[in-house]
């Protein structure tokens, strides 16, 4: 009994301490408003890096290729919805929109399915799997938006750190994938579906293991 009283006293003194420490705080903006600057700056940065690396020669022809446009659109949907989901997840209750991550997860599942379909039709084209040029480009495109996204997210408080890392990874991977498709002319499944994506998946898995530390609060 005495222990309970002590604990209640502790709670009372904790409340007193927390109330004393209170400082004015501005509520976080609406998730869309919060993520918009990141999306715009990342898109601008991506465009700059693509120009820096060099745009693929056949981009005008490719802009009329339905399958190319489908893949770019799907990657855009994955990236944008994952970034929005990350922003919503900054609030502990996900702003009462717990279904939001499912949009990008479903889009990513469609992308995976599409890659498998392409693989079954085209084969993996082993001769086109070479890791020498797209890794640097991918790292260059991904690293700054990834750091900016993590810093933005850390202003909020997430209650789903692992899912948050998954959404961050999808947001940045989608962005880097689009940029690499504009810069690299190799469109085979082995190259665009494996070489360009695998480093982001591996980074995402590593960050996933560290998620609770990364977003601890």
């Amino acid at each position: 009994m005495s222990t309970n009283k002590d604990e209640h006293k502790n709670i009372d003194s904790l409340i007193e301490g927390l109330s004393g420490d209170l400082q004015c705080c501005k509520p976080l903006n609406c998730p869309f408003k919060r993520i918009a600057p990141w999306a715009i700056l990342s898109a601008a940065y991506m465009a700059f890096i693509v120009f820096f690396i060099g745009i693929r020669d056949d981009l005008i022809d490719k802009s009329q290729d339905v399958l190319f446009l489908f893949e770019i659109s799907l990657a855009s949907v994955i990236s944008i919805t994952a970034a929005i989901a990350s922003s919503f997840m900054c609030s502990p209750d996900m702003c009462e929109r717990k279904w939001i991550p499912t949009v990008s997860i479903t889009s990513a599942a469609i992308f995976l399915l599409w890659t498998i379909v392409r693989y079954s039709v085209e084969g993996i084209a082993y001769e086109d799997i070479h890791w020498d040029h797209c890794l640097e480009g991918g790292a260059l495109i991904g690293i700054l938006p990834a750091i900016a996204l993590v810093l933005l997210i850390k202003k909020g408080k997430t209650t789903a750190p692992v899912m948050m890392v998954a959404m961050n990874t999808l947001a940045v991977s989608g962005l880097a994938y689009i940029a690499m498709r504009f810069a690299c002319a190799v469109d085979t499944v082995g190259h665009s579906g494996i070489v360009q994506i695998t480093p982001f998946i591996i980074s995402g898995l590593i960050l996933g293991l560290l998620a609770r530390k990364l977003y601890r609060w």
Partner: peptide, 17 residues
């Protein structure tokens, strides 16, 4: 309960009225 109270304090800015 104490940990939740501390969490409320730390994350007050994430609550939208």
């Amino acid at each position: 309960t104490q940990e939740v109270l501390i969490s409320v304090h730390k994350s007050l800015n994430t609550y939208s009225p």
